[in-house]
Design a protein around this nucleic acid. Structure first.
Lengths: 248, 248
DNA sequence: ACCTCGACTTCTGCATACAGAATACTGTAT
DNA sequence: ATACAGTATTCTGTATGCAGAAGTCGAGGT
């Protein structure tokens, strides 16, 4: 019996990975922020969060460090953590950055084009069209996110993928509340993008993606003008709010 | 006497800002990593670092969180922190991302062109040329970094600036040990870039910057082929190394 | 009524403590 | 000698403790 041989089903990947509390806290808090249950600007008191999530302050603090470095919360030394409140200018800047990164993704995807990937893209595109046809907003948003992610995956650039994922999550945080989609037109653009990727035409792919994200940005700006501040009732973490944010 | 009026010299900015230990630890460790005193792959033992820097494990852990999220160290749950060891592929991917971000910076800078900024660029360009003429490597590197930073500042996009700064620091970490510069040619490209920005020609600026960073990338790849692994003697943090990195 | 001052409370930042996992060490059998 | 097993040690993850800063509240003076 070959004892040092790796067992047959090595493919079963690390199932017993100990998921640290800080990670779960991080996830939980990010969701609370994205869903607006923790409102922008709100002061996050460590002990309250700890009590709420049933852990000590230590994992809370570590999660806050992460959330801070990714732009979800602001850490003001001596004053604590506050849910980041993006300014209009910042949102716009982020959308510009996203446009650039997504355009690069498209460019690389076109250079790395492969049949299997294109097939996945087409399938997602069809799903999106179907969602539009049946007026399924959630389906549209999901298909859109997946399609964009798929393009970035096809770029075969892990660094880019990580960065785009992060940026996209933030964009969706800003953008979601008014995310009634542009519908059919958007998916036509996607189709053209996929054509360019399939043809291996890097410049066309990059240009198409840039125009696409640029239109999304314009659509955001318009909707923002009509519907300035969506606002959702935040959860009161424990009691009344104390401690005001210090002058910035 | 107008008591509630802000005092005359309000411009004296927050001098008493309490710089948290974690920030200083973060800085210190980043420098140790960049200077290769902490070698890629090395296991970072919290208690050793704590002793070395004269603080408790808490600020160390918080700094490690930050360093992890920015790609300087890898945190393996249950195994601790290890200095990130970039693969060749990853370096290349990062250079690609940098090229895209810098090109976008140039594009925006051209759109926002202003005389004062262009003057600053020209001055830095002259400094770079002077450094080349006098064979001053450090001067060249410094002028180069400052010029690129200045371009990104001119883009008037804070989000982009933050992201590029981070990426650039990492690129420099990977790149520095073999950073004999391309000399005169590089600064000619800079000059053409500035011309494009001054003229407000966004496409030309983006294209020039992309070609420039692309050449830098090629130069990196070449040098890497000649001089595969530079290696610097790492500091032993306390005693002999223990704990091997777990299988990835 | 409003402002000011001072005691009290809350919160952050840092240090320390403790349990369990992971690693290294040591002795024994083959 | 090598392989193995069991023990000792180290290290991480989490919780708790503590000092000082920041914020709150109320009494007294104007």
């Amino acid at each position: 019996m070959p004892s040092t041989e790796l067992p047959q089903q090595m493919s079963a990947r690390r199932i017993d990975r100990p998921v640290p509390l800080r990670e779960r806290v991080y996830q939980a808090m990010q969701e609370l922020i994205i869903s607006r249950q923790l409102a922008p600007g709100q002061h996050l008191v460590e002990s309250e969060l700890a009590e709420m999530l049933g852990v000590s302050r230590q994992p809370i603090r570590e999660a806050l460090q992460l959330l801070n470095s990714e732009g979800w919360v602001d850490l003001r030394p001596g004053y604590g953590a506050f849910v980041h409140a993006p300014t209009e200018a910042e949102v716009d800047q982020l959308l510009v950055v996203r446009a650039a990164l997504e355009a690069e993704s498209a460019r690389l995807a076109a250079l790395n084009t492969d049949a299997e990937g294109v097939a996945r893209l087409r399938k997602l595109c069809a799903q999106g069209e179907a969602a539009v046809a049946s007026d399924d907003i959630d389906g549209m948003v999901a298909a859109n996110a997946e399609l964009h992610r798929c393009v970035t995956e096809l770029s075969a650039n892990q660094v880019l993928l990580d960065m785009v994922s992060q940026v996209d999550r933030r964009v969706r945080w800003y953008y979601t509340p008014i995310a009634r989609h542009r519908g059919h037109q958007s998916w036509q653009e996607h189709a053209r993008l996929i054509d360019a990727i399939e043809a291996g035409d890097a410049d066309a792919a990059a240009r198409t993606m840039r125009e696409h994200t640029e239109r999304t940005r314009q659509s955001y700006l318009e909707q923002r003008r009509e519907n300035p501040e969506p606002e959702v009732a935040p959860v009161q973490v424990r009691s009344r709010r104390r401690r005001t944010a210090p002058g910035v």
